[in-house]
Simulated scan of single mutants.
Amino acid sequence: MPSYADDLTLAARLADAADAITTARFRARDLKVERKPDRTPVTDADTAVEDAVRALLAAERPGDGIAGEERGGTGWSQGRTWILDPIDGTKNFLRGLPVWATLIALVEDGNAVVGMVSAPLLERRWWASLGEGAWLRDATGDRRISVSGVSSLSDAYVSTTHLGSWTEYHSREAYLALTDACWENRAFGDFWQHCLVAEGAIDLAAEPIVNAWDVAPMQILLTEAGGSFSDLSGKVTFDGGNALSSNGHLHDAALSILQRR
């Protein structure tokens, strides 16, 4: 198995550079905000982070492809490509809520092999690389993380991002059926819910609409933590347009419910 230690070290440097920008611009009075064609917001912090990360990658990995939410880029089915989401949770960032993060993934021939999620205002950073496990840094230090052992939906804790998106993109009824089958549900949203599954704090996270940059690092984070990650059809991919993270034990049962229309 190839080693991605140098790439993981670089991903940490990229996250450090991103954190320096995002923390400086968080709650800034002169923050500039625009709306993209899909009506989602983008700030000058988003573009500044992506430009800074791209510049570092151009210097350190000139032969690799780059694809980012704000500046676009190459595909990722062949070769090595870095996939970037400069600020996942931009709406939270805009409202002064601390739940946002920079997401970085290295994808090789269509598969995520390095993942980095840095949430500086939560004082948390999650990372993983192929064959080296999943890790969390918080106030207590660095520790290896793993998914929960919950094996029944009736004991499971499930999260999503926005309930209304299920109506538009999949099936609200199917998601509500899943919450009814589970013990507890919340909407932690975005990156955080998938990281919580990797930590073993919750057991399932489901999203009816995502882009590749929203979840590319989650694929490697979840699998290295011992869990499962797929789209809602069950295909193991970060590029299916929707996503399900689980502790592995519950994956098929959750998919069975979510596939009902």
Rank of each mutant, 00 (worst) to 15 (best):
L8M: 08
A11C: 13
A12K: 11
R13I: 10
R13A: 15
A18S: 14
I21W: 07
T23H: 09
A24C: 02
R27G: 03
R27T: 14
D30A: 13
E34W: 11
T43N: 00
A48D: 15
V53Y: 02
G63E: 12
G63T: 13
D64V: 01
I66W: 06
I66S: 09
E69R: 12
G72E: 10
R80I: 05
T81Y: 02
W82C: 00
F93C: 02
F93I: 00
F93G: 00
L94M: 14
L94I: 15
R95F: 03
G96L: 04
A101I: 07
T102K: 01
L106E: 06
E108F: 09
A112F: 06
V114S: 11
V114I: 11
M116W: 04
A119E: 11
E123R: 10
R124K: 14
W126F: 15
S129L: 02
L130M: 12
G133S: 11
R137H: 12
D142W: 09
G149C: 05
S154C: 02
Y157D: 11
S159D: 08
R172P: 06
L178W: 10
R186Y: 10
H194S: 15
H194K: 11
L196Q: 11
V197A: 07
I202S: 01
D203K: 01
W213I: 06
V215T: 12
M218W: 09
L221V: 11
T223F: 07
A225Q: 01
G227Y: 00
S233M: 04
K235F: 06
G240Q: 04
H249D: 14
R261D: 14
